[in-house]
């Protein structure tokens, strides 16, 4: 598959990485960064897809047939708020997710 170095690159335990090739496609749990969460008012939503176009993490799906028409992957949403700022109907509000300061 991929040519990998046989020996460990660095003798330190912290950096035990085999070879210079990456072969695993993985995702970080960036949903844990979130402080505010976008909340969609499904009744005012016109399903235009502007939020999905501008979402940097590409976590928004527009499902035109379903009642919950804006589906967000909470595992990865960083809560940046671009969707709320760009929504032409302003039907997305950012609500605080964590309690306590």
């Amino acid at each position: 598959m991929l040519n990998q170095q046989e020996t460990v690159m660095n003798k330190q335990k912290r950096f035990k990485i085999q070879g210079p090739c990456a072969y695993e496609f993985d995702s970080g749990n960036t949903g844990s960064w979130r402080i505010e969460r976008p909340q969609v008012d499904f009744e005012t939503c016109v399903k235009c897809g502007t939020c999905a176009t501008y979402c940097p993490a590409n976590v928004i799906t527009i499902e035109k047939d379903k009642e919950i028409c804006v589906d967000i992957m909470w595992d990865y949403c960083k809560g940046c708020g671009i969707c709320a700022n760009e929504c032409p109907k302003q039907c997305i509000t950012m609500v605080e997710e964590r309690c306590g300061k």
């Binding site: 072969y23 995702s27 749990n29 940097p56 590409n58 992957m73 595992d75 960083k78 708020g81």
Partner: peptide, 22 residues
């Protein structure tokens, strides 16, 4: 070629550690 641990739409993983709003 690569083992897919977590599936994603498109060619890039969803949970990339770029800053929020990048």
């Amino acid at each position: 070629m690569i083992d897919i641990k977590k599936e994603s739409r498109g060619y890039i993983a969803h949970g990339v550690s770029a800053c929020a709003g990048c």
